[in-house]
Design a protein around this nucleic acid. Structure first.
Lengths: 269, 269
DNA sequence: TGCAAGAGGTTGTCTATACAGGTTATTTCA
DNA sequence: TGAAATAACCTGTATAGACAACCTCTTGCA
């Protein structure tokens, strides 16, 4: 009698088969992905979730705690839960924004846009972005400078439906990567690193000597299971390296986001 | 009165300031690191932990659940909790073992050991391994072949105290990386990727043309906060690439370990 | 002998409650 | 008016108890 009076004390009752903390997590993630909850916005407190969804506080706590571990939100004891800043979230996905890298070294970043238009692309690029071979795609081609020394050539394609106002951006001041993160948090990424001697155009833009190799990073990013951007990033091999660090979680939690960090480093000047 | 009778119902009682689930986790991790618990060994069940440590089952559950998320253990409902296979655990840390990569492609792997000895090393290497400049370090220098084509030159240094029987290993059949994982799960890793034209010795061993670039991966790994191994891996730039994929956790848990995977790929033959 | 039923252990989830400790805004008092 | 106490939040942790689902081994029956 007491068990029945409690309504649903057991767990597989609410129609779905998924656990309730998981439903809660997905509900909050979808509010973040849709833009309903924006970075630094306040997320409902555990107590509010108890009131609005009927779960117990421990269940709400588990949902929010796991979202914290996964980088979606940040929690401050005594204050509340907030959507994580995109910069922090995207560090996990993107090679760190090159402008930030440069500023972190105390140097000046500058970008020169060489091309910015919507155009039909080569079949292989169209295929990578899952668009038909004849449709248009946003394209930007630019050079990044660190203290007036060229350090990266960026050749990027972005689907039009994902970034409708792409061509109106000023990529001298905001890098394409930062702009994409601003539109929506990226959900999946694939990157490939190669060593390659670049063609003469790239070589000239990076003021490289003949036969000098490039570190080429090719990256594709997804939002909602659809590829939205494809980029080729060329770096002079004698001036740059790609560094990564990994610390398994749960051992020393002192640097919460320090693990799994990937960054570009200038090791020569 | 009831509160006192319960002994310690509150949480910051047991001398240490760390939460009890965290203490439990570290205790189990240290049993794994020390070799007391070996891969596939059974880990005490939640009930047993309740009995032996006095925590509640929910606390034991949280400890084991987080260890699962972090890749230390695997749990099977109705059966028990087991120390994760080292192969799975080290995928997070190490670039996937090159022999496994090759076998996964259905090709044959072979290694030719060129040098294997304990020797005094250059000051920079000694510094990286935190050993004094005059002490000896294990060293192995070998070439990995895929179907008799050389694809990686491995130049590795391992501290003697970590691997006392290093020189007795047969690195033709077990790669140094696999051997190190066998001794103890690695706890921290740092790697740097560069594009570089190799010296003539490396170039010759990899049967590369002049001026052809290498993808050079430099990796350092830690156990118990001490560096134990430092390796330089050279790959012919025209035959190899480093690929990574990242999917944020909690979204689609269908492929539990599929995120954060890094592998070497042969893209040419 | 062979198969079904059951017992007992294990993980997975959920609830209700409690206390500790942090932050912020309000209120009270000198 | 100014500063200290207080109230009202918040997160973090821990407990005890419950039900569900799963697995394995044993037991009992046909």
């Amino acid at each position: 009698m007491a068990t029945i009076a409690k309504g649903r004390g057991n767990y597989d009752m609410t129609s779905s088969t998924k656990p309730r903390y998981q439903q809660l997590k997905e509900q909050i993630i979808s509010r973040i992905s849709s833009g309903d909850l924006r970075p630094l916005d306040r997320v409902p407190s555990e107590h509010e979730l108890v009131g609005s969804t009927g779960v117990s506080r421990m269940t709400a706590n588990r949902a929010l705690r796991e979202l914290t571990d996964e980088g979606y939100v940040e929690r401050v004891a005594g204050v509340g839960t907030f959507v994580a800043d995109l910069k922090a979230a995207s560090d996990l996905l993107e090679v760190r924004n090159i402008a930030d890298e440069i500023h972190m070294r105390g140097h000046e970043h500058r970008a020169a846009v060489i091309d910015l238009e919507a155009r039909r692309v080569a079949p292989d690029v169209a295929d990578l972005l899952h668009v038909s071979a004849r449709s248009r795609v946003n394209h930007v081609f630019l050079v990044h400078f660190e203290n007036d020394v060229p350090i990266q050539v960026e050749d990027r394609y972005v689907t039009i439906e994902f970034a409708k106002d792409f061509l109106a951006q000023d990529f001298q001041s905001v890098t394409p990567s930062a702009y994409l993160s601003m539109i929506s948090p990226l959900q999946e990424a694939e990157h490939v690193v190669r060593a390659k001697v670049p063609g003469s155009r790239i070589s000239r833009l990076l003021t490289m000597k003949a036969n000098e190799p490039c570190l080429v990073v090719t990256r594709r990013t997804w939002v909602n299971a659809r590829p939205v951007s494809f980029a080729r990033l060329f770096h002079p091999g004698n001036r740059f390296e790609l560094a990564g660090r990994y610390r398994p979680p749960g051992f020393a939690r002192s640097h919460p986001q320090d693990s799994k960090l990937v960054e570009l480093r200038n090791f020569d000047r």
